[in-house]
Each structure stands twice: as structure tokens, then as C-alpha cells.
Design a protein around this nucleic acid. Structure first.
Length: 263
DNA sequence: ATGCCGTACCGTGTACGA
């Protein structure tokens, strides 16, 4: 197979970020981009932005919250909105997961629930959401151990202590709790591989920096955006990078894009 | 310089983010 470059990026509004997303696509030349937090419904999604740059795009957005998409110039087939048995929040299956087969790879663009506070109902929702997603992901490998699957997006979990700038700051907060980390680790136990960390090891390597408190220039961030690859896909990875340059300047998303190169 | 919060919404405030 020919080399393919795939990426994931929480853009924090596709409309507010349209110019930066277009410039980034042209600069990086990625083949597939999984997008999170488009913050729009289909009617206001900037379809032409992708089409004029040679990408097909599938979007799943219900309102101004959440919203996920996949843009591809290596095919976009069998689009799936929500995963099997995806748990609802307040009786709504939110726009947090979309899948498509691009160049033979089953791409999932994922925006894991935030959790809000330990003890908040949103936290239980987050854990259940991750648990059911893992069941679905594991079932794909059961059905075909050679399946090429990429679970990519904003996981809203910092799996290791050095994935946050100061563990003391996060004491009692979400993203670093035992249950969240266990829910993330279950994907690794199921055979999925964090294919970025070996190419971008910590400490001090992050994908997200809060807009407030000068977190970015102070290098106070979190690693919460991941590409988890099935074994067959992990075997094709030749490189990976977190594009922290994209976090600089006016009009940046609070998340940096994460790029993976496939052989 | 990487620079002092941002996004969407019938909205001059509120919800949400992590």
C-alpha cells in the first residue's frame, strides 16, 4: 500500500477555525483528518472548504455542541454515525463519534465526554461511553484480527502522570482519575496501541493547553488527544507528531493536531 | 517571542469546556 498520512484535531468550532483549518490542510498535506468539536449542525458546516481542497467530508452535528467529522482524499465509505449501543446523555445519543473507511483504514473520529466534575452524572456517562466504545472496538478485532482500525480524537483522559503539567493541580479533578485511566487502559488491553507516544515521548509533551492563565507559553498542558491503532494498523506506522506550532498565535484552537504516517 | 479565555446561542447573559 502507498504511504498515507492521517491526523486528528479538536478544532473547537469548524466555522471559527475555517481559515486555519484550510491553511493547515494545505501546509501538512494530510490524506485523512478526523475532526472534533465542529460545534455546528450540518446546515452550517463549511462543506466547500473541504471540497475545494480535494477532500470528501462526512459530518455528524446535531446542534452547537460537540460535532465530529472525517475529511479524506483517499476515499470515504461506509459512514457510521454513533457507535453500536452508544450511551445517550439526557436521552440523546450525542454527536461524538463518526466512522468511515478511508484508504482501507476504518477511521473513528471521537470526542469523549468531558466528565465535568468527579461525582457529576457526566462522569458516569463518560465512563459508560468509553466502556461501550471499547466493547465495540474489541468486537471489530474479534471479527477480524487483521482489521486496520484507528480510534482517534479527543479522549479527555490523561493516562499517565506526566501527561499533565502538574499532578497536584489536578488533584480531585477529572481526566486523571483512576476510573478514567482504567477505561482508557482497557483499550490498550484489548490490543489497541498508542502509536504517537513512541515518536513524541514525554514528559512535557502535550496536545491541549487551556486558553487561560498563559498555559501555552508556560508549557502547562495536557496530553489528551490520541491515535489508538489496531495491531495491523500499528504495524504500518512509520512516524507521528504533535503539531504544537498550530497552537501558536491568534485564532488557534486550544488543541494541537496529531499526525500519524502510515507505510 | 508561544502572551494574559473562547465558542455558540435570540444573547447585552448563559452553558460549556478541561
Amino acid at each position: 500500500m502507498e504511504p498515507v498520512k492521517i491526523a486528528t484535531w479538536n478544532v473547537n468550532s469548524i466555522r471559527a477555525r475555517a481559515d486555519r483549518v484550510e491553511a493547515w490542510l494545505q501546509r501538512t498535506d494530510v490524506d485523512v483528518l478526523a475532526i472534533q468539536e465542529t460545534k455546528t449542525k450540518d446546515e452550517s458546516f463549511p462543506w466547500e472548504l473541504f471540497e475545494k481542497n480535494g477532500y470528501e467530508v462526512a459530518h455528524f452535528g446535531l446542534d452547537q455542541w460537540n460535532g465530529v467529522a472525517i475529511a479524506s482524499r483517499v476515499g470515504l465509505e461506509d459512514v457510521e454515525r454513533t457507535f453500536v449501543k452508544q450511551p445517550p446523555f439526557k436521552e440523546v445519543a450525542e454527536a461524538r463519534a463518526i466512522a468511515a473507511t478511508c484508504g482501507g483504514v476504518r477511521i473513528w473520529s471521537l470526542y469523549v465526554p468531558n466528565g465535568r466534575e468527579l461525582g457529576d452524572p457526566h462522569m458516569q456517562y463518560k465512563l459508560e461511553w468509553l466502556d461501550v466504545l471499547r466493547e465495540h472496538a474489541a468486537s471489530l478485532l474479534d471479527a477480524d484480527p487483521g482489521a486496520q482500525v484507528a480510534l482517534m480524537g479527543d479522549w479527555n483522559v490523561a493516562p499517565e502522570d506526566h501527561d499533565v503539567w502538574d499532578m497536584a493541580f489536578f488533584e480531585g479533578k477529572t481526566h486523571v482519575s483512576g476510573p478514567e485511566r482504567a477505561a482508557f487502559r482497557a483499550f490498550l488491553d484489548a490490543g489497541f496501541v498508542d502509536v504517537v507516544r513512541p515518536f513524541a515521548p514525554g514528559p512535557g509533551v502535550y496536545t491541549y493547553w487551556d486558553y487561560t492563565q498563559l498555559r501555552f507559553p508556560k508549557k502547562q498542558g495536557m496530553r489528551i488527544d490520541f491515535v489508538l491503532a489496531s495491531p495491523a494498523l500499528a504495524g504500518r506506522v512509520t512516524g507521528a507528531a504533535i503539531d504544537r506550532e498550530e497552537r501558536k498565535g491568534k485564532g488557534a484552537s486550544d488543541h494541537a493536531p496529531v499526525i500519524v504516517d502510515l507505510d
